[in-house]
Design a binder for these strands. Structure first.
Lengths: 239, 239
DNA sequence: CGGCCCCTGTCATGAATCTGTCATCTTGGG
DNA sequence: CCCAAGATGACAGATTCATGACAGGGGCCG
């Protein structure tokens, strides 16, 4: 490969968490051919280490793993404010496990049933990455007097840090990343809570409320606007 | 009130395009149990007719069909300005991945390989519908000093936002989208309120009044013209 | 291991806004 | 001047949203 530099610049990082080495290698081969950067981990512990070193853009997670199962690991990730943004594609051995995944309310973005073709794998990865919030990378977002530091996972107004819970933070990050645009509660749930998670739509209201409450002391609560009958919108121009 | 009930209230319309009748019936059964409104079509021609009568919120499209194949039909839909917003889920018989990839490029939102469980079908439909933007494509409509931003779902005159209720917004959006054309009250009800809704025709008058009232401060109320004995019309040229 | 604290999802309730319909007034045309 | 059609203003009922409270779950620390 003569354009390694170029490719690495665009190549998204994918972490493969899978205990069987042959499958890992197969995945690595297929993914690298598509110019993704691949990291491997044989179990959850190795995955944690890998992520500490380099934050992946997507995780391919095997359902069946020794020690901590894939589903438990997915839960662990979803519980972490820092890692919850990373989309997960679950790999299952049997089709009926798909139902379990949905039933267990795990917030994975998609799943594949073995055996799957590499073409299908690539297609699903692309689809998931396409609709991912571009907030995963370290950056500093500025909007309406707010500064979101994604590396530090903190939000500031002026010199003051605003205390936010994990969900409030992610909600704000999502909205700020897509300003001047209405999102239905269902869409917000999808992109902030994750897919395959069944939560009442009204829960969005409550978190919007909590977010506004936290922003209110800085006069920034009006940035999150209610669009009656539709949903919510972030905008720096007043309603 | 549980989640199912909430979704029921909207009762999304799904068009099933599939040549094999037993499968159509199976799909209808599974979908109606989830309170979706189902229309059936055995081929592309029937599908066109059905859509002309009632615009579906989602299309389940069989890959293998006599005459026009599913993929060609999907292309046709994507080429249509009015129909391209309708999400498509493709049904494929073979696990042949090349077809799947091409399907994705064709612009269908997801696909299912037969045989699939109804649980998976429902899950994917939900996911696609949740992802879908209610207002269709993002647009910026300009007319007579007004600017309608469909993504943000609001209307501006110059630098000022115009506060509108949900129905007023939809009414204005409809009229601006079809300028210089008279619509009867019945037609307006059909397009703005939706089909199968019973309301007095005079209600249109009231909402036109409210819309004009909201537009009046910006001198834009004259854009909505009364055509005595017929209905209303949006036009930038004075009556 | 137990206690404590934070975060979350869900509800019940009250407030705010929207909606459809009437009754009444105005306007336009013949 | 008369009549029909449309414009207005007022309202009560419905929706939709905001808010405060609460119990369960999980993690952290003593």
């Amino acid at each position: 490969m003569n354009r390694t530099t170029l490719e690495t610049m665009h190549g998204k990082k994918i972490l493969v968490v899978e205990d069987e080495q042959p499958i890992r290698e197969m995945l690595r081969f297929a993914l690298e051919r598509e110019d993704y950067q691949v990291n491997e981990a044989a179990d959850a512990q190795a995955a944690r280490l890998s992520m500490a070193q380099q934050r992946p853009n997507l995780i391919l997670l095997d359902w069946m793993m020794p020690k901590l199962s894939g589903i438990e690991f997915a839960r662990e990730l979803n519980a972490s404010a820092t890692l919850k943004d990373i989309p997960i594609i679950m790999l299952t051995a049997r089709a009926d496990e798909e139902d379990k995944i949905r039933g267990l309310n795990v917030g994975c973005d998609d799943y594949l049933t073995k055996p799957f073709s590499t073409a299908e794998l690539i297609a699903r990865i692309r689809a998931v990455l396409r609709r991912t919030v571009p907030g995963g990378e370290d950056e500093r977002l500025l909007a309406g007097g707010l500064e979101i530091n994604t590396a530090a996972q903190r939000v500031a107004a002026g010199e003051q840090w605003i205390p936010l819970g994990p969900t409030e933070y992610r909600l704000l990050l999502f909205l700020v990343s897509h300003p001047d645009r209405v999102y239905t509660r269902a869409q917000v749930l999808d992109r902030v809570w994750g897919q395959n998670v069944y939560v009442e739509e009204r829960t969005v209201d409550v978190h919007v409320r909590r977010l506004r409450k936290a922003l209110a002391p800085f006069g920034a609560d009006s940035l999150i606007q209610t669009v009656r009958g539709s949903g919510y919108r972030f905008s720096t121009s007043p309603a």
